[in-house]
Design a protein around this nucleic acid. Structure first.
Lengths: 337, 337
DNA sequence: CTGAAAGCGCTTACAG
DNA sequence: CTGAAAGCGCTTACAG
């Protein structure tokens, strides 16, 4: 038996149907151990609820509790692909096991994020995207009970410290240096792009790794994603003594390999190329593209523990948490290096 | 001035602070034209609200109204990439202009979708993913006021009619037939995959187009995404008289071109290949991959009108709506065909 | 073991 | 032009 059309079943309906008070219904449905209920009453209430198709009104529950049983996971719009999808899935599992419903929000603007927090009234906001201190401070007054994840940035323009991305740049350089390259180029996508902050973090990691290894700092090369334009630039790059380039992501690595094909060059002899992210397409280039990437791991427990800690009022170091949850970057060596 | 730590500002605080009743505060903040308020009172209330940093409690509003001012947009997890992101952005804009907050949910399971609907109590659910009739029927009792988008499927196992994907298969065939190919292969990814329903719809479109043009029905080829395995299969495929293949998506097209390179074959002479989706990587293959795709269009108005119509109680034909919102598939001709 | 009642923070008919 | 009060659907101290 379902709801009469147009009217939703409330706890009063269940109480009337089973002949008990609404308090008792609430105790039974919430399985309150401290309020002992006779098995007979219990059974009657459960049967009525099932019969009528009762669904608690989440708005009423949220109003009463002061927050909804929702954890809002905020991700970056550039955070795409299968690895990210699986990471979110793991986090979702961890948080779901704690009894919360996960809502994933892809943050396109801080105003929109605030709006979502306001309408959702989440128990916790899990920030996997960077947020300005200003917006961060508004989250709790808007209705977020707890906030965890990445620390706030000084302002909207500031670039967050994506130390995990730096690990990718470092791994690229390490791989090339082990193969004897001393003068390395780092290729970024020319012009504004949502991926630029990620690319710059990877570059920063490469710069640091070069310093650590006593290599000269990498030559930064801004190139468009067009094989003809890249082909025009490559000869001068090689003439400058660069023997290997890191691409900020595989797609750019593929574009460089394509340009080399057009020039009649062959990797790694004429120029070694390494990409990043281990995209499936990097296997379909000729030669196949070497790539640095961070494998995905099941971080469900990490996420759950993190949430637990924050709810318990502990002060947690976001960077340290992330560091222990994320495995180090690794390189898959293929033919292009 | 912000909230006193630990306690959120309510409408009563604003009323007390500005010396009026909470009813008047509500009228002013909701800009109710039917309740004329003196400019002085109005100004005082607005100043108090701003001063105190008042934010209406969404749970209370939702409880009172019977639903939240949220439109839940449900998408398919396989629905990724930039075109999809932009489509969602357009829909978001259209719905936001109507005064709703958009929440995007990537549907991984029907149980999870139901859970989200229950906690969000959305004003409307906009289905861009297929849902079984069973789950569809539960959405309203769970707290969804209106439902629009794709029609329900008979059961969980059923495959939805993705007619727009069929347009892609048809465009692929049309392109190949115009270039003189009479015996066409259609390559699907071997084994189970979340993309399989999409691939099958494209195949169905290709089959229909072949029939329309008097071509024999395409040979279905199930291949893995591995260049060596594909290279082993290709000779027999060519020997069977197939002169051109459609790949269910560009990634597979790239794998086929890679396998051909390994065989020393050259497209389109030895075999013509056309992909789908116009992925950026298809430009970096040698030869470059021709591809069929549906360009993205700004459907903000469509989405808003659709929502309006459903709220007004009109019966709308989902397929017809989608057909008029989506442009037809087109082909970008490159070197591989 | 069970129930009547208060109260979460709003909006809105209704009365002045 | 403004306000007191009811009520949305819950949970929970409190009283029996």
């Amino acid at each position: 038996m379902a709801a009469r059309a147009g009217k939703r079943i409330t706890i009063s309906d269940v109480a009337r149907h089973s002949g008990v008070s609404i308090a008792t219904v609430s105790y039974v449905l919430n399985d309150r151990q401290d309020k002992s209920t006779s098995p007979a009453t219990r059974a009657r209430v459960l049967a009525s609820a099932a019969d009528l198709g009762y669904v608690p009104n989440a708005a009423a529950v949220a109003l009463r509790r002061g927050h909804s049983k929702v954890v809002l996971v905020v991700v970056d719009p550039t955070y795409t692909g299968e690895v990210s999808a699986r990471t979110i899935e793991y986090i979702t599992n961890g948080v779901t096991n704690l009894g919360y419903t996960v809502l994933v929000h892809s943050k396109t603007s801080e105003a929109q994020l605030c709006d979502v927090v306001r309408v959702v009234q989440p128990f916790a906001v899990f920030l996997l995207a960077f947020v300005s201190a200003d917006a961060h401070a508004r989250l709790k007054p808007l209705g977020a009970r707890h906030i965890l994840g990445l620390d706030p940035l000084p302002d909207t323009e500031a670039e967050g410290d994506r130390f995990w991305e730096q690990g990718i740049g470092a791994a690229q350089v390490r791989h090339l240096e082990e193969r004897g390259h001393r003068r390395i180029g780092y290729v970024l996508l020319e012009g504004p792009s949502p991926r630029l902050p990620v690319a710059r973090s990877r570059l920063a990691g490469a710069v640091a790794e070069c310093a650590r290894r006593g290599l000269e700092t990498p030559v930064v090369l801004n190139l468009p994603l067009r094989r003809d334009a890249i082909a025009r630039e490559l000869p001068a790059i090689r003439d400058s003594g660069v023997t290997a380039v890191c691409a900020h992501e595989d797609r750019m690595g593929l574009a460089i390999l394509a340009a080399m094909t057009d020039l009649g060059w062959s990797a790694p002899v004429d120029l070694a190329v390494i990409g990043a992210d281990n995209s499936p397409e990097s296997l379909f280039a000729t030669p196949q593209l070497s790539t640095a990437w961070i494998p995905d791991t099941d971080n469900a427990d990490h996420a759950a523990q993190w949430l637990d800690a924050v709810v318990a009022g502990e002060q947690v170091d976001a960077a340290a948490r992330l560091r222990s949850a994320l495995p180090p970057a690794q390189v898959t060596h293929r033919q292009s290096t």
